[in-house]
Amino acid sequence: MDRREQAQVGVRRTVIRTLAVLVGMFAFAFALVPLYDVFCQITGINGKVDATAQSIVHEGVDESRYINVQFITRGSPGLPWQMSVETRQMSVHPGQMAEVDFTFTNNSHSENWGRAVPSVSPSRATTHLRKISCFCFEEQQLEGDERLTIPLVFQLARDLPEDINTITLVYTLYPVDRVIQSVSLDNALQSNTLNDSQSDLRNDLKNNKVVGETI
């Protein structure tokens, strides 16, 4: 085999190998999405809370310390709801069961779907917070002008690290219908002659609850 042929075989081999790496890295980028979620769930980093109900653990109440639990609620553009909480903060013992009422108000005259997404700070406390019942596990539907009060039932684990004295729970309301949420797209569509067919599509999507919880 002369030099030139040898080089060509080498080039082909190099190209195949680099293409394999390329495909691998592209797949890796997408694999990072579930890996990241798993990593966050195991470590509790990022304040991502388990979205399923947990059962009460009877481990006795640690009456030697009080934990200050704060509640923050936030709305978001695109959903005409208001969310309020009966008390901004409460003191609980680790191991003690606690209940607090949250009120959702639909300020518009039409029916909407929404979801309250929780976040816990400091993130180290995330794995020590057990939610027995929470509106955040599922999407909520409110009729026009409806007002709905739902309790949050939770318990702090006794093994909560000693240095944590305050835990902040933030709930952010998000509209479930993604097409409505995209405000800039809406503005662009308003100048569009296809406006009517688009809003039909939007209504279709609104009735379809699956949209918006793809991931």
Binding site: F26, A51, S76, Q181, L185, G212, E213, T214
Partner: peptide
């Protein structure tokens, strides 16, 4: 390829209703 992956996720979030980076949908 990682950049290509990220902007593809953006593309899907914007146009195809996924929620890779959208907290409302679990992203």
């Amino acid at each position: 390829p990682v950049l290509a992956g990220v902007i593809t996720m953006m593309l899907m979030d914007i146009n195809f209703g996924t929620s890779f980076f959208d907290a409302a949908g679990g992203g």
